[in-house]
Structure formats: C-alpha cells, structure tokens
Design a protein around this nucleic acid. Structure first.
Lengths: 337, 337
DNA sequence: CTTGGCACTTGAACTCGACGAGTGCTAAGT
DNA sequence: ACTTAGCACTCGTCGAGTTCAAGTGCCAAG
C-alpha cells in the first residue's frame, strides 16, 4: 500500500459521506464511519494534501471538508465497474417498459421510470434513426389552399407539416404529385431524400411546378430537422427536493432545461467513455447548468440518441450511473425489437 | 357613497399593494399610496371589519394585513371589465403567432408566449377537435409482424400506433384492409368511427379476420383517446422566481403539474363565467395546487379546450386575466383559419 | 510515517434589549 | 352615526454579545 491508495480511499469516503449527509465531513467522523485503519490525525494529513490538490475544500475554518467539482471528477473516474441494478429495480423496469406498442408512450414511460429510479430529473432525446427510410408519403387537402404533408418512415416515425399554398389545389394534382414524389423518395434515408426531391422536381409537369416547389421545400425541412430532435423530461420536481442543493434558485436551471436547444447541444457534445456513459460535473458545464451534474448514455441504433439525468453535483454517482446505463441498454434492446 | 364601496376600495388597495410589494400592508401605508379621502384610523376600522369577514388576516399582531384566499376571491369578483392588452403586447402576440404552418409549432409558441406575458407557468390543452373527420388511413409494414397504423384527420392531426401481430403480414392483405377500413371510416368523426369499424369488420374476408381484428382494436383506441388530451407547459421556472411565494417547497407543485391527469381534470372542471374566464384561487383547488391560483379560458371550436396559467395566489389577477383571455381569443381566431 | 495532544479559529445557536411598525381602543369632533 | 387624533400595548426584527463545540493545524514523540 503506497501513499496514493489511502488518499483515494479518504476522498471516496468524503464523497460518500457528504452525499449521504449533505454536511461537511470532518476527520473524526470519517474514521468512525469507515474502516480506514488509521487515526484521525493521519486522515487530517491526507485531507490537507487533498485540499492542496484542489479536490476538497473547507467552507470555513472550523468546518469539515466537502468535495470540489474536481474531487467528484476524480471520484467518478476511480469507479472502475458499474454495478448492475438490484433485482427489484430490474423487475420494475421490465414491468413498466414491456408491452408498449406506441413509440411515444414508450419514451414517456421510460423517462418517468428513469426519473423515479434516480430521484433526479430525467431527460430523453428521441432516437436518431438515420438508417430509417421513407416508407410512405401522404398529401391531404385540408382546405382549398391548405395541404398536409405526412411522411412515414420505416422506423415507425410519422412526421407531418401543413403547407399553405398561393392557389387552390386540385385533388388530381395532389395525387399526381404524391405518386411522383413517392416514386423518387421511397426507400431513401432522410439524408438522401434531398437529392431525391431534386430529381423529382425535374419531372414535374409545368402546371404543378409552383405547388410542387412549395411542397418540396417543406418536405425537405421536414426530413432534415425531424421532430426527433426533441427532448422529453420528467421529475423536475426532484430539483426542489433538497433546497440546500441549489443555494441560489432553481429557476435558472428550470429555464435551461426548458431551453431544449441548449440541452440538446450539451447531450450531443458529451462523449461516452468505454462504459458507454458520460458524466459532466458542475463547472464542466457552462451556463446555468454549472451547478449541476449530468450523467448520460447513448442508446438505440448507433447509440446516436442520448438519455440521462440532471441533478445536483452532490449526487449518488455510482447508483445513478447504474440506472442510466441499465435504462439505456434496456431501451436499446427493445427498440431493436 | 354607502358603507360597502369604501370597504371594497380598501380591500382592493390592500390586494394591489400586497401583490406589488409582497409585504403585509398597514393602514398608514395605505392612505399614503392611495387616494382614499380618509385618515388611517378610519381605514383601521375598515380593516378590522374586513378581517371579521375573513377577507384579510394579520400574520402577527404588529404587522400589516394580507389578503386571504377569500379576499382575493372577492377582489376578483369585483373586477367588472377585463382590460385589453397593451399595444406593445398585442404586437408581440401577432409577431409571434402569425405564420405558423404546423399545429404543434403553433401550440408550443403559444404556450411560451403566454408564459412570458404573464410571468407564470402557462399550460395549454390540445384542442378537442371532435368535428374533425377521418381523412386518410395508412397501414405500413415495418417488419414482418409489425404494422404501423396512421390516421390523418381533416383537422391536420396525425396519430399513429404500432401493432405487433401474431403472424406474418402480407403486403396484399394490408392493402386490402387499408382500402376496406378507409371505405368505412372516411369522413366519419372519431366518435362515429367505432360504428364504422364494426361495419368494416363484417366485410373482412375469412383469411384476414384475425389481423383485421387486432388492427380494428388499435384503431379504436387510437381514435378514442387521441393525443389531444395532452397538456403542454412552459415557464415552470417562474415558480422559482420569488421563493417567498411558496413557503414550503415548489416540489409538490411541479409534481402536480407533471401529473397531466390531475391538471386535465382541473381544467375541465373549471366553468367559465360570462367573460369566458375562470379563476380558481388557492384553497379552492385541492391537493398540491391549494397554494396556487389558476386562471383559465376556453378556446377553439366550442371553447372545448382550455389554456391558462398557474401561479402563486399572490398574483396580478387583472393583468393575467387580460393576457389569458387575449391569447385564448387570438388562438381561437387562428384555429378557425 | 503515524499518532496523541493542544492551542486556535470560527460558525451556529442562544439570550437580551432596543426599536419600530402597526394595532385597538377611547374620547372628542363633525 | 361616522370620522379622527391620541395613546398605550403587542410583537417581530435586528444587532450585539456570549457561549459552545466541531474541526483544524502543528508539534513532538513513538
């Protein structure tokens, strides 16, 4: 046993106690509650060293220490294996997530479950299904100058958009265009679809040119930025559970969470480690999320979409990591049928 | 000028000052800031009377008074005319809500706008469009045993559901069934559709009986409980803006808001008065919402769906009522094209 | 390198008293 | 009958002072 191991043990103990008690932890309490085979004075030396390294701080002279963001980071990086879910939790997951025919329903249950398991705010990004292809296209006249375009993808996703046209639209034109577009788009991925649309436009008869142009534009947008890039959320009430966790207000955090764009960028930025998990701690995040930690995992085909939780930096990292990873895996499995 | 009017003036002044300052208001401050033509002693007498009636209370002996829920109620009932929006606000509404092609987009913008105008949590129930009719039906085979059913309504709503079947499904059967169902459903409202489905089932050829049964069941559910009964929300961060407003935690309130069922029932229960508005104050609500006030208005065809805001009982009622009513009217107008 | 001992720091909790905002009541005025 | 001035009284807030104990850092000895 060289010097490093015990120091890490001490750090680990501090993190665990602080997460459990929310109170700065002193050297005495540490030796009482953990079997480090040394006295409090020794621990004090270690703590002084840890403080020099910037892993813990004392809020004031006569109080114990609390971990810094950097301290949590080291703690998290130390975690070598992610424990599996408990049997009871696994049962809960299976009961709640099995037998759901509807994608939205499924997603909604998943995010609620994750929030309950972790007691944190859970976020879930709709899956990127880039490998899905256009399966069907429907153009419906809602009103003389209003057309609804619906695209159905092989993944089971359905996206729609309403278009207002300059001139009245005849059922005949609409049908012709539908067949024409569909011929050029069928089986293409959303990425390829832009080319398909261009090819289709070339063959449009003169009289439908204008309508086709408008429709093609909307279809292009529809396929490019699909509704998938949405985030759903559950358990925001957990932010308010322990008022001490967010000394200022939780207002800015709620705002940031409602601002889906920000959250989306954050999730996409986060790179997963070998365990398929990514953890961002406190000040590693920018803006209003700088006092929160985010634990996320990719799921689904290519692990392109993310799910995860947002909570206070003072968080049960091992347990939360377990839950996030488990849900991500389970969801992946279900999505691949 | 009989006795009643001034007492009401005093109540009104108390509510206004308290809403503005969040501090108990005393007799002295009242005569300073409002032109009641009387002395503080007289006001004190009125206040004592108001307290006897249970409209205001003193948090402690040597503090001013604050309105009770009952006091707010009387105050709100006194409001005879709802002011229109300011010019600037009206401009903002028009800029933000015009030219939106997509229903979801529209709803989402509306709810955010309402939240910004009122500085409260805004909630918006998707419109009941019972008069809309089935416009199109699409059955797509996603996998050998997985079929996606998509229903397009004349209102532009699109609903979908995936179905897992016992046996492999052939494209031919699917096409036949689609035509068959569509023939029986086209032009029907969701309510009538149940009958249509039954009629359709009668004509299904023997070999497709089973598949048709499964599909019909799902379609029935799909049409019965459509995605419309959903609520979207914006501005939850406003709950945290003034910590004093919710002495306990805002946790339970966030929970209640996430529990869409509760919120939905509340909204449907609320009956609108002559002005098209309904106001529920504090303890008039049950459960966790007992310390909040809700202001709602119906909108859309038949004013069947509701939108509104949820905030602290200490709220700018006149202003919020103005905004809610304006948004409801504006949205109604747009929805009717 | 560990440990016991010890002086020192410092926030939390409590008490105490002065202060002041606000009331209710009474008696006089209109 | 209502309004008003005056006044005694109540209580919560604020600040100062004090005690208490947790926890530290350091030193000298093992």
């Amino acid at each position: 046993m060289s010097e490093q191991p015990r120091r890490m043990q001490v750090l680990q103990a501090i993190v665990e106690d602080y997460v459990a008690s929310r109170e700065p932890v002193g050297s005495k309490a540490l030796v009482d509650r953990h079997q480090l085979g040394v006295s409090s004075a020794t621990v004090r030396n270690d703590m002084a060293a840890l403080e020099d390294e910037g892993l813990i701080v004392a809020p004031h002279t006569s109080a114990g220490r609390i971990p810094t963001d950097k301290g949590y980071r080291v703690f998290v990086d130390q975690i070598s294996e992610v424990k599996p879910l408990s049997a009871a939790e696994r049962r809960a997951v299976q009961t709640l997530l099995d037998s759901s025919d509807d994608l939205h329903e499924m997603m909604s249950r998943t995010v609620r479950l994750l929030s309950q398991l972790t007691h944190q705010v859970a976020v879930l990004q709709y899956p990127h299904l880039d490998s899905s292809t256009v399966r069907h296209l429907e153009l419906v006249a809602l009103a003389p100058r209003r057309v609804l375009a619906v695209v159905i993808l092989s993944s089971g996703q359905v996206d729609q958009r309403a278009v207002t046209t300059e001139q009245d639209v005849s059922e005949t034109s609409l049908n012709a265009l539908k067949q024409l577009f569909l011929r050029h788009l069928d089986g293409l991925t959303p990425v390829q679809a832009a080319d398909g649309l261009r090819a289709a436009m070339a063959t449009v008869p003169e009289e439908d040119r204008e309508l086709a142009g408008v429709l093609a534009g909307q279809l292009d947008q529809l396929l490019a930025a699909r509704r998938e890039d949405r985030i759903i959320m559950a358990g925001t009430a957990n932010l308010a559970r322990s008022p001490g966790d967010f000394p200022y207000s939780i207002g800015p955090i709620l705002e940031a969470l409602e601002e889906q764009v920000v959250l989306l960028r954050l999730l996409t930025e986060m790179e997963q480690d070998v365990r398929g998990l990514s953890v961002r701690i406190g000040s590693e995040n920018s803006g209003s999320l700088a006092e929160t930690s985010v634990i996320a995992a990719g799921y689904g085909p290519g692990a392109g979409a993310k799910l995860g939780v947002v909570g206070p930096t003072r968080m049960d990292y091992p347990g939360t990591m377990t839950a996030v990873r488990a849900i991500a895996r389970y969801l992946s499995r279900i999505l691949s049928q």
